[in-house]
Design a protein around this nucleic acid. Sequence first.
DNA 1: GTCTATAATCCGATAGAC
DNA 2: GTCTATCGGATTATAGAC
Lengths: 226, 226
Amino acid sequence: MARIAGSSGPRTEEAIRRAGLKLIATHGYAAMSLRQLAAEVGIQQGSLYNYFRNKQEFLFDLIRGHMLDLHAALDAALLPEGSAEARLTRFTEFHVAYHVARAQEVFICYSELRSLEPDNLAAVVAMRRDYERKLGDILDHGCATGEFRLADTRMATLAILAMLSGICTWYKPEGRLSREAMQEIFTGMVLALARGETQALARGEGAAEVAVVPSRRRRALQAGVG
Amino acid sequence: MARIAGSSGPRTEEAIRRAGLKLIATHGYAAMSLRQLAAEVGIQQGSLYNYFRNKQEFLFDLIRGHMLDLHAALDAALLPEGSAEARLTRFTEFHVAYHVARAQEVFICYSELRSLEPDNLAAVVAMRRDYERKLGDILDHGCATGEFRLADTRMATLAILAMLSGICTWYKPEGRLSREAMQEIFTGMVLALARGETQALARGEGAAEVAVVPSRRRRALQAGVG
DNA sequence: GTCTATAATCCGATAGAC
DNA sequence: GTCTATCGGATTATAGAC
């Protein structure tokens, strides 16, 4: 990134934000040094402290700002009334659009929670819980009206959010599918999951009991392969 | 962890592995120092180099070993023949069981890919792709036989894997649901998603166009809230 | 195999000139 | 607001005694 000549407050601030998003999304917060960030922006490392008090505050501002945006945008997109199906459709379309448009920020919000200090983490987790509840309420309502058939709405909430949030881990703007196509595909999958009319197959007893912890001997053999 | 007196090769090796899994899962690879790791094991930092050549090799061994275990366990669990529904049921039950039993290792395999150097990353990504293909083949087969109805099997592959893999981000052994209950719930959701007989609702035009990038002014207001 | 000691580098954060 | 310079400490990795 080109060197910015002279004084320029707001421009530098936005450049730092964008560079930080990119570096943290790529390498992670702990692996990003402030010298790296300053070089990407085109300023000296010490100058960064005109824009935050310390590295932790920079991360928290990024994540908190994004969560506020997310909530505001969801509230604007969500229907206050209507059938559960219509509201779930809206929720899914919004979630896909948001994750496509702001994949980096969304990714950081999931992956860098571990890097937040306790107080900052608590604030973000509370906002996250509110967000989950909005989906959970739709699912609960749909089950009450008979539109949805879910064995466990809490698990369904986590499953749907994980499924949709996964988008930000592999989505590329130049990819095969347009935003509209992805919205339609994912809406179809989410609705099918929620309606879930079918019964699970009789489970093959024993299948679930497969060994998931390898023997010490197999581990040793694996090490030898390298 | 208690100090291990005297020489003890294999015991130390396993202790390092377990401590590394815990620390990396909790704080991340970049944030874990070798001094921290050594302290957790109860040895001095320099002694770690009897067990790996450098920090990167330690991470790669952890991830690669886990991927080998995962593949071997899946192959043992998966039915070579049978209906697509039966095979998808087996796949899901296995995936849930594995993620419940080894949540830490699975989590690291997703979250620390970014910390792998290029050659190591390429090796892991190749293994990951093989794994995805095994699910993709089941879905393709099911669509061909008419058991499944999916608009896009590639998206469905990614969606199902994200949904199941999400388990390792929130699962706690002391949680509300047993492994068996989770297997049944998730199998039901995955099968419903794959069968997906229903059509999506007519989409509310305009709903997808909601602003996902806030105005500069709103951002400034948000910053003021703090 | 474990220890102590240390090399060489990098880190976040601060001070003060302009 | 940006720069240069630096402080104090932490980091990975190595060397050599036991």
